[in-house]
Lab assay of single mutants.
Amino acid sequence: GAPPLPPYSAGGREVTMKKGDILTLLNSTNKDWWKVEVNDRQGFVPAAYVKKLDSGTGKELVLALYDYQEK
């Protein structure tokens, strides 16, 4: 199953993602919540729920390892 959710501390809205989604990583300075862009929406997802990909394009991409439903 998915890892436990860290307390929400990102101070911005969250976004929903599905397992297998490829998201653009915008900011990973917060260790628990990373800012991503998905379907032209920006928001935060739990860092433990995604994995960085080596895209080779200069853009940082992450793979959704679990479904996440915004609150």
Rank of each mutant, 00 (worst) to 15 (best):
D40L: 11
Q69V: 13
D54I: 11
A10I: 13
V38Y: 11
A10M: 14
T16K: 07
T29C: 09
A47Y: 02
L63V: 15
G1V: 08
L25K: 01
E70W: 07
K52E: 07
S55N: 15
L63C: 07
T57I: 09
S9E: 10
L53T: 05
K18D: 03
Q42K: 12
P3T: 04
V62G: 15
V38T: 13
G11P: 15
V62M: 04
P4L: 11
P6D: 05
Y49P: 01
F44E: 02
K71M: 11
A10R: 04
W33G: 00
Y68R: 02
V62Q: 00
N30C: 07
K31V: 12
T29D: 15
P4K: 06
N27C: 07
I22T: 05
Q42T: 13
S9L: 11
Q42V: 14
P3Y: 05
L5V: 10
L23A: 09
R13E: 12
Q42D: 08
L23I: 06
A10N: 09
D21M: 15
V36D: 00
T16S: 15
G1Y: 10
P7M: 09
K71A: 10
K71G: 15
K51S: 11
V50Y: 00
K19H: 06
S9Y: 08
V36S: 00
E37Q: 13
P46H: 01
V62C: 08
D32E: 12
L53Q: 06
A47T: 04
F44T: 02
A64N: 00
S9Q: 12
E14N: 14
V62Y: 08
N30D: 13
V38F: 15
W34A: 02
T16C: 07
V15W: 06
E60G: 08
L23T: 00
G20E: 02
G12D: 07
K51F: 09
A48G: 07
L53H: 07
G12H: 11
K18E: 06
N39H: 10
G43T: 03
G20C: 03
V38H: 13
N27E: 14
T24A: 11
V45K: 01
L25G: 00
K31I: 10
A48S: 12
Y68H: 05
A64K: 01
K35L: 13
E70M: 08
G20Q: 03
L53I: 13
Y49I: 03
S28F: 06
A64Q: 00
A48T: 10
K19T: 08
W34Y: 07
K31W: 06
I22G: 00
I22S: 02
K71D: 14
A47V: 04
P46D: 01
Q42Y: 09
D32Y: 14
Y68C: 01
K19R: 12
N30A: 06
Y8R: 03
E37D: 08
V62N: 01
L61Q: 14
P6L: 03
A10Y: 06
A64I: 02
L25C: 05
T16Q: 08
Q69N: 14
V38P: 00
Y68N: 01
L65A: 03
D21H: 04
N30W: 07
K51N: 05
N30R: 08
M17H: 01
G11Y: 03
S28C: 08
K59W: 08
P7A: 12
M17W: 03
V50P: 01
V15G: 03
P46W: 02
L63P: 00
K59L: 14
N39K: 10
K71Y: 15
E60A: 11
D32G: 08
Y68M: 02
G12S: 07
T24C: 06
P4A: 11
K35A: 08
Q69F: 14
P3C: 05
M17Q: 01
K19M: 06
S9P: 14
L53F: 11
F44I: 05
G12M: 11
D40S: 12
K35C: 10
P4F: 06
G43D: 02
Y8K: 05
E14C: 08
K59H: 12
Q42E: 12
K18P: 01
D40W: 07
L63M: 14
V15E: 03
A47H: 02
T29L: 10
W34C: 03
Q42M: 10
V45E: 00
G12Y: 10
E70C: 05
G43I: 06
L65D: 02
G20R: 02
G58V: 10
V36N: 00
E60Q: 14
I22K: 04
E37H: 05
V15L: 15
V45I: 10
K51Y: 05
Y49K: 02
L65I: 09
P7V: 08
G56A: 15
K19W: 03
D40C: 09
P6N: 03
T57S: 14
W34E: 00
D54F: 09
L25A: 02
T24E: 10
P3E: 05
A48E: 10
K35H: 15
K59R: 14
P7N: 10
A2K: 10
Q69Y: 15
Y66Q: 05
Y8G: 15
V45R: 00
Y8Q: 14
D32C: 07
G20K: 01
L53R: 02
P46R: 01
A2D: 08
K19Q: 09
K71P: 12
D67Q: 03
G1M: 12
G20D: 05
E60R: 11
F44G: 01
G11E: 12
Y66L: 04
E60P: 10
A48L: 10
L63E: 13
N30H: 06
P4M: 11
S9H: 12
L61S: 09
P3V: 07
A48W: 03
V38I: 15
F44A: 02
L61H: 07
W33F: 04
T29Y: 08
A47P: 02
L53C: 06
Y68Q: 01
E14M: 13
T57H: 11
A47F: 01
D40G: 14
P3D: 05
S28H: 08
A64P: 00
K31R: 14
E37A: 11
Q69G: 13
T29A: 12
E70F: 06
G56F: 09
G58E: 13
D54N: 12
E37F: 05
G58C: 05
W34K: 00
V38A: 14
W34R: 00
L26P: 00
T24D: 05
S28Y: 08
T24Q: 07
Q69P: 14
K18R: 09
A48P: 05
G12K: 06
L65V: 06
R13T: 11
I22R: 04
T57C: 06
V38Q: 11
Y8D: 09
K71F: 13
D67K: 04
T24Y: 07
W34S: 01
Y66M: 05
M17F: 09
V45N: 00
L26I: 13
R41N: 13
G58N: 12
V45T: 02
E14Y: 11
E37C: 07
E14G: 11
M17V: 07
L26F: 03
G11I: 12
K59D: 11
K35R: 12
T16W: 09
P7K: 03
K31H: 12
W33S: 01
L23W: 04
N27L: 08
V38R: 14
V45Y: 00
V15F: 13
T57E: 15
E37K: 11
D21S: 06
K51I: 11
E14W: 06
E37G: 07
Q69L: 13
L26Q: 03
I22M: 06
E70T: 15
M17N: 01
G56S: 13
L26D: 01
Q69W: 11
N27Y: 05
L65N: 03
S55L: 10
K35M: 15
F44W: 15
V36K: 00
A48Q: 13
I22D: 01
